[in-house]
Amino acid sequence: MNRFAIAPPRFLALALLLALLALPGGAALAQAARIKDVAAVQGVRSNQLTGYGLVVGLDGTGDQSSQMPYTSQTLANYLQQMGITLPPGANLQPKNVAAVLVTAQLPAFARPGQAIDVTVSSAGNAKSLRGGTLITTPLRGVDGQVYALAQGNLLVGGAGASAGGSSVTINHLSAGRIPGGGQVERAVPTPFLLGEHIDLNLNAADFQTARRVAQSINRALGEGMAQALDGRMVRVRAPLDPNARVAFVADIEDLPLDLPRAAAKVVVNARTGSVVMNQSVALSPSAVAHGNLSVSISSTPQVSQPGPFAPPGAQTVVTEKADIQVSQQGGALIQMAASAQLGDVVKALNALGATPQDLVAILQALKAAGALQAELEVI
């Protein structure tokens, strides 16, 4: 019997668990922060690196060369670089080799010789990279320059086995990591020591936060040291001496900051039905009616036998008898009073007895009616 029905009301409190952590009792503590928690120095960031290489030493789980010709071509090119010339028309079909894409993050201020972690992902149809070794692979930036070299044994967090046409796989076998498998070969120029100013970029654009960052710096270092240029950037006068500038930025990042109250926002995950709201969410007086619709479909097989006077060649036929039932629960009209605190909002929504999936529709309707005082974001 196949059954399609809306789940009974439950788990609403779990869907709002994170929201309950932000109740007014802990609001004052949650608003205290440092400048380094909300802003970063412009130009001080990591850079993405990528490369193409080969993983060797696989136990027959590599690429099928007949379907992935570039794996054989890459191996032939590598052997030619090692001084091994293959005869014309040689058909390489290695089962222990896989073509991979290698990615890494080059940290800010990275210097030649520094080790970085790399991630290796299969680019073909290899069954598993477990037990493989990445041969030397250059990692390039967006400018095409080589900034690091990667090589080493892969760590794959999974396992698999197959026999007789059956297979079992645990976790993901076509990707792995090499801790410290990359070595930096070139440093990335940084504008940190250039100019008379440093710019602080806020993680989220907010005029109130930008003003408070500038005020915190001016109180500690003197009036006129910092200026909020817009809702995202704060410009600070900095010393020219490199050693003094590093100490200057370290002191600025550790300055205390009183964050403004966060803008009211409700975040809805349309795929999972999760709903999270912050402590600024409020409700205006409203009335909501909610009911559940349940559709039940059952299928019963029936056998139809040929009659006594059936023509020759008549056969027994199996038919399906479908039974469809639709039921709808009544939804009483519930009055929701004005709520200025998150706890009251949660209690009002729990009173509706709605599942997280139904809650999405209710919140959208409240927003359209002007009763939900918050930004509704669907991800």
Results as ranks from 00 to 15, higher is better:
V44N: 10
Q31I: 14
L75N: 05
G43R: 06
T300R: 11
G60L: 07
N218S: 00
A5M: 05
L139H: 00
E375Q: 14
D143M: 07
S65N: 04
T136P: 06
D358E: 12
A13C: 10
L193A: 13
T136M: 13
L366A: 03
L352C: 03
Q315I: 09
A250I: 02
Q373V: 11
G222E: 03
D37A: 12
V188I: 09
A354H: 02
L134R: 06
F192W: 09
H197G: 00
I198C: 10
P112L: 10
G222I: 09
S296I: 11
F109K: 09
Q227F: 12
Q80N: 12
A108E: 11
Y78W: 11
T137Q: 08
A210Y: 03
S274Y: 02
S294M: 07
R34Y: 10
G89H: 01
Q305M: 09
S46W: 01
A108K: 04
N171G: 04
E185L: 08
V317D: 11
A210T: 02
A340M: 11
A7H: 15
S46G: 13
V213L: 02
Q364N: 14
A33R: 13
G176I: 09
V120W: 00
A226C: 04
K127W: 03
G131D: 06
S304M: 14
P256Q: 13
Q31W: 05
V303I: 11
A175F: 03
A348V: 07
A161Q: 13
L255R: 13
V156K: 05
G313L: 08
S339I: 08
I362G: 01
A348F: 05
L293C: 05
V55T: 12
A205L: 12
L349A: 05
V249Y: 00
P256I: 11
T190C: 06
H172Y: 02
L86Y: 01
P94C: 11
T74F: 12
A40E: 00
G60P: 03
G164P: 03
V326N: 14
V41M: 06
T71K: 01
N201G: 12
R237D: 08
L149K: 04
G141M: 05
T119I: 01
P87E: 07
I84C: 06
R219W: 04
Y78F: 14
L352H: 13
A214R: 08
L134A: 00
Q81Y: 01
L139K: 06
S46T: 08
G53S: 05
G370M: 13
G176Y: 00
I116A: 03
L86I: 08
L372V: 08
T190E: 10
P87D: 07
M68Y: 02
F248L: 01
G89M: 06
L134C: 02
A161Y: 01
V100I: 09
Q341V: 12
G195I: 05
A351S: 15
I178D: 07
V184S: 06
S274F: 09
I297S: 14
A210Q: 10
L283C: 11
L154I: 04
S299W: 00
A28S: 10
S166N: 15
